[in-house]
Design a protein around this nucleic acid. Structure first.
Length: 899
DNA sequence: CATATAACGTA
DNA sequence: CGTACGTTATATGC
């Protein structure tokens, strides 16, 4: 049967741009990406829409019309046409082209006509179809199409998003607007269309316009009788007749465009399933949308070939006796690993391990292995020539460590690889990664597979093994995908040569942990507890003994600003701030004794809190094993948690005392701290190549004194404390994208003074100013910032129309190369220090990293050598144009190891 | 019971 | 209205 008999024609006409744009805003741009940074949300939404409409409306023919860039004849009539529109969002760019590719694969004709809009194409085709006795369905959110609706032309208006449509036939139009569709252009001319920048008659909305149309027949009738219309609206109409006539001219659809006339041209059913599938692969579209593509699109009504679900090799559960042979035969070339185990308080436990290759899948239950089998497994795991990958290699190694197994030959850490490609994304577990990149739900897949197994013969398999096997198989496929992505992001070397080897080093130091004295902490806690009661009682005494909750900002607001009537200061989202800065200001103003007690209470409470947290994490062996994460901080720094050992107090005397609890490992002689002196400013000097700053570091003079002497134009020895601290604040502030406002607030000086200070700084250190400006410009052009090792951070917001977002991204762009390069350097240093310790066969070991500092256990008699190791390892980690200086301190504990 | 907010510790 | 984090207690919403 051919649909070329026009009487049977049922043509679907879609406004490509209007619907793509709608899809773009209906779906999150950051939730749909092809994995290469191209957003695909509009493509996905549009595809979804056309699939749904074809499935439900069953058209015989389809055409999609697009606007062309550049003007149309309407712009020549009215130069403000469609003026005042926002710029195209950057994520939308490129999606129209992709939609056209999808349409080609679906075998759907798409059309453009120079000098005309998509509307005109649709109008012409609809008109012709109707004339020839066929039927047309128009899909667009553009209201100009309402005028086209007729007996055989129906409009489908998107209601919500792009998949829900409202059918508009003449009756529906009449009901909604009170006029028939052919009069809608008259109504629109009177009311105006803000989207097209066509102002109508002020004070006249659809109701008034419809009333006039009913009364006078049509627009010419209204204009002819304009003089009779009473009231404000009538006057307004008379004052804007010219606008109305222009609008009517502009909104009239063109019905006679020359377009391919043969209905055959638009016939549905010329799509190519293979091409479509390949394109969906490229777009990273999942299996769901493929399944929903109606066969009507494809030549011969074929089904869309489904991306074949991966046929998993059978899950083997080898007996001990079979394992050695299996490891060499099936997994001799390496495997993807997934495990079921734990690592808590330095205690690891690996229960099950799944191994996957393309052809084999095995799940081992460690407790079931006999000695020979376990030895074979140990040898396989330890073999550095057998490549292995896992979602979180360090964690798997920790679990294995609990069984006395160590793993060598790591090839890819999926979590790290994912992070290097998308540093600003929140980390996700393996199931999340699988969903994101393979569009498969591990849990669902495993459950479905298990059901099939259950129906078949019982082969001793179980649901958990099935799930673990699926996980290992996912690791296998993700590994390939992510390695190619690493290449695309120029991050393969960062993964292979920096982060992955580093994860092994970090694993060692996490497993080692740091000795912490519970007794010392208990003593401190006791002191603070006494003090806490004291200041709390004193605080309550100033409130007529009212025992409010001093830890509740809400209650404090009530007390401070209502009851005591103190002057309100800074605002928070929900009320007035009660933070320390505000309280100190308030105390200086009012000298109210409650404030002093409250501040003291805050301090002492915070201390107790920190102490309490630390104590909860002390293992039975008296050590704290923090976890360092390599995939959290977008700049490339490590982060530490459970507990965080990178924020142990150091600024106040009281706080520092906590550090005295850290140290004295049995068998070790002392603690050593080694830190980089002003590493971020050195990186600034290196990157900016500012002659003055480089000289500052080469002169050996105190940095801030040197810089201050230049800024204030005095001899270095004349620099006083105020000058030095102001200069220091600017130096560091610059690397954070500090504003004059922020600087003024921090230094308690006027904004004018702050501006002058900054200008003076930039005048003497012009290279810094140029560097900062250029690095933002470069990031805007490339879309990302880069560290000295090429670690990228993508900042799409640099081109945002939203000022707040854009300026925030600019500050991030200033800071990331600096903070990130410092992170790169200390990571290199950790690798180097680890290597040197091995070379020299020292027992001393690294315990902690605190961004620019390493904390080490020094073994008896090794202090001199360890000093050499850190001086060399940290000092020569990376060659900058200024020296890297390392400060070293040694003492019985972390407090006394300061320098 | 889970999430949000304000606060505050570090580099 | 400077960057990067983690933890906590309180308050709020389900």
């Amino acid at each position: 049967m051919s649909a070329s008999d026009t009487g049977d024609q049922r043509i679907l006409l879609i406004d490509g741009h209007a619907m793509a744009f709608r899809a773009f805003f209906a779906l999150p741009a950051d939730g749909f990406s092809d994995g290469r940074g191209q957003a695909t949300n509009a493509v996905y939404g549009f595809t979804r829409m056309i699939i749904n409409v074809v499935a439900s409306e069953k058209p015989t023919h389809v055409a999609v019309a697009f606007d062309l860039p550049g003007g149309t004849f309407r712009d020549r009539i009215y130069d403000q046409y469609k003026g005042g529109r926002d710029e195209t969002p950057p994520e939308f760019v490129g999606q129209i082209d992709l939609i056209m590719q999808v349409l080609d694969a679906l075998g759907v004709r798409w059309l453009t006509v120079e000098d005309y809009e998509a509307d005109d194409i649709i109008a012409s085709l609809a008109h012709r179809t109707a004339t020839e006795g066929g039927e047309a369905l128009i899909v667009t959110s553009d209201r100009d199409a309402i005028q086209l609706v007729g007996e055989s032309v129906t409009l489908l208006q998107p209601v919500k998003g792009v998949t829900e449509m409202r059918r508009m036939n003449p009756a529906a139009i009449e009901e909604k607007y009170g006029i028939p569709p052919e009069r809608y252009s008259d109504l629109a001319a009177l009311v105006g269309e803000s989207a097209d920048n066509l102002p109508g008659v002020p004070g006249v909305g659809p109701k008034t316009a419809a009333k006039w149309i009913v009364q006078y027949g049509d627009l010419p009738g209204i204009i002819a009788h304009a003089g009779e219309i009473k009231g404000k609206a009538g006057q307004s109409l008379r004052d804007h007749i010219a606008d109305v006539e222009r609008n009517r001219l502009m909104n009239a659809a063109v019905l006679d465009l020359e377009l391919p006339a043969d209905p055959e041209h638009y016939t549905l059913g010329r799509g190519d399933g293979t091409v479509l599938n390949a394109l969906f692969d490229e777009l990273a579209f999942g299996p769901t949308i493929r399944k929903d593509v109606p066969a009507d699109f494809l030549a011969g009504g074929a089904d869309v070939p489904q991306a074949p679900a991966r046929e998993l090799p059978p899950v083997q559960r080898p007996a001990s006796a079979e394992l050695p042979e299996l490891l060499t035969s099936a997994f001799g070339e390496g495997a993807a690993l997934a495990s079921d185990g734990s690592w808590v308080l330095g205690q690891g436990d690996l229960r099950r391990l799944a191994l996957a290759t393309d052809d084999a899948l095995a799940v081992l239950t460690l407790a079931d292995l006999d000695d020979a089998a376990e030895r074979a497994l140990a040898a396989w795991l330890e073999d550095p020539e057998i490549p292995k990958s896992a979602h979180d290699t360090k964690n798997l190694a920790h679990q294995a460590r609990g069984r006395g197994l160590r793993i060598a030959g790591w090839r890819t850490d999926l979590a790290i690889a994912e992070f290097l490609c998308r540093p600003d994304q929140r980390p996700t577990d393996l199931a999340g990664l699988t969903l994101r990149h393979l569009q498969e739900d591990l849990q669902v897949e495993a459950a479905a597979a298990q059901q099939e197994l259950d129906l078949g013969a019982d082969d001793g398999s179980d649901a958990e093994a099935e799930q673990l096997g699926r996980a290992a198989d996912a690791v296998l496929r993700l590994e390939r995908l992510l390695r190619s992505e690493l290449e695309e992001h120029a991050a393969l070397s960062l993964h292979d040569d920096l982060e992955l080897p580093l994860s092994a080093v970090i694993g060692e130091l996490e497993a080692t942990g740091i000795a912490v004295s519970d007794d010392v902490l208990a003593g401190l806690d006791q002191e603070h507890a006494t003090k806490q009661t004291e200041v709390a009682e004193s605080a309550f005494s100033h409130l007529d003994g009212d025992r409010i909750n001093l830890g509740s900002p809400k209650q404090l607001q009530e007390v401070l600003y209502e009851r005591l009537g103190l002057p309100k200061g800074r605002r928070t989202k929900t009320g007035y701030s009660t933070n320390a800065e505000t309280l100190v200001d308030l105390f200086e103003k009012t000298q109210h004794p409650f404030l002093a007690d409250l501040l003291a209470h805050r301090d002492v409470t915070k201390m107790r809190q920190i102490i309490d947290t630390l104590r909860r994490f002390i293992s039975p062996e008296g050590r704290i094993h923090t976890t360092f994460h390599q995939n959290i901080a977008a700049t490339g720094r490590l982060s530490s948690n459970n507990p965080n050992l990178q924020n142990i107090p150091t600024r106040t005397e009281e706080g520092r005392r906590i550090r005295s609890a850290f140290g004295n490992s049995a068998g070790y002689h002392a603690l050593l701290t080694a830190d980089y002196s002003q590493i971020e400013m050195r990186i600034m000097a290196h990157l900016s190549e500012d002659a003055g700053l480089i000289e500052a570091f080469r002169s050996g003079e105190d940095l801030h004194r040197f810089v201050a002497s230049r800024v204030f134009d005095v001899e270095p020895e004349e620099v006083d404390g105020a000058m030095r601290s102001k200069t220091k604040a600017i130096s560091y502030g610059l690397a954070y994208g500090l504003s004059a406002f922020g600087l003024a607030r921090q230094l308690h000086i006027s904004q004018g003074e702050a501006t002058a200070l900054r200008d003076g700084y930039f005048e003497r250190f012009g290279g810094v100013r140029d560097f900062l400006r250029e690095s933002v410009e470069k990031a805007r052009a490339t879309g990302y910032t880069e560290t000295i090792l090429g670690r990228r951070r993508y900042l799409p917001d640099l081109t945002s129309d939203n000022r707040q977002r854009r300026e925030n991204a600019e500050r991030v762009a200033l800071n990331s190369p600096i903070q990130g390069s410092a992170a790169d350097i200390i990571k290199l240093a950790m690798l180097r220090v680890d290597e040197l310790l091995r070379e020299k066969e020292l027992t001393s070991r690294v315990l902690l990293q605190v961004h620019d500092e390493l904390v080490m256990d020094v073994a008896e008699g090794e202090e001199a050598q360890v000093r050499e190791v850190v001086t060399e390892g940290m000092g020569s980690a990376f060659e900058l144009s200024v020296p890297l200086e390392v400060g070293i301190g040694v003492g019985p504990n972390w407090l006394e190891a300061a320098h």
